[in-house]
Amino acid sequence: MTSLLAPRPAAQIWSVKKNEEAAAKKRPKMTAAQLRVQKDLTELELPNTMTTHFPDPSDVLNFNLTITPDEGIYKGGVFHFTFAINLNYPHEPPKVRCTQKIYHPNLDLEGNVCLNILREDWKPVLNLSSVMIGLQYLFLEPNPDDPLNKEAAEDLRRNREEFIQNVKTSMRGGSVRGETFDKVLK
């Protein structure tokens, strides 16, 4: 070795790195988040009750999910969610919002969603598929014990039949307890 100065510190480390077989190959520079989203999306196997839509097909980090439950209380509705994924994914969960005003114990009137894996129980081993399945589950089994819309949760707890009627009214675009909801029927 003849070069002693400027490149030296790097050179010393470089020679170490060169010895590592795996590092001897050039890698395209893609962010870990993009890579993970690509894997999540391209291996997604959604039931026919869910479809994704990408407003900009070259941007895989922002998209919409439509859920059309084929059973349960919310059957017949068409529900839209937005997914926004940042570069900390999968260390941070995707940000998910409902774009409609829906009468549901676990959704508030602004579209916030109370789903444990979107916040306190998120783990990087979970993926977009887990979140989507989780969202669909909310429509099959609304959970009155973790309410975001307290009135709806109370209705469900107190009188399930009446709650079902309220859901039907709200999905037609009617009002429940003075609050008008978005029409979500097909």
């Binding site: 993009q34 690509q38 999306l41 479809t51 839509h53 990408f54």
Partner: peptide, 25 residues
């Protein structure tokens, strides 16, 4: 067996799924 390809920027070149991106690419 079922590769999906993209630019390093993340822009899809050929995606197996979801359907819209598969059709688009």
């Amino acid at each position: 067996s079922k590769p999906s390809l993209s630019h390093p920027s993340g822009k899809p070149l050929y995606f197996q799924a979801p359907p819209q991106l598969h059709d688009a690419t």
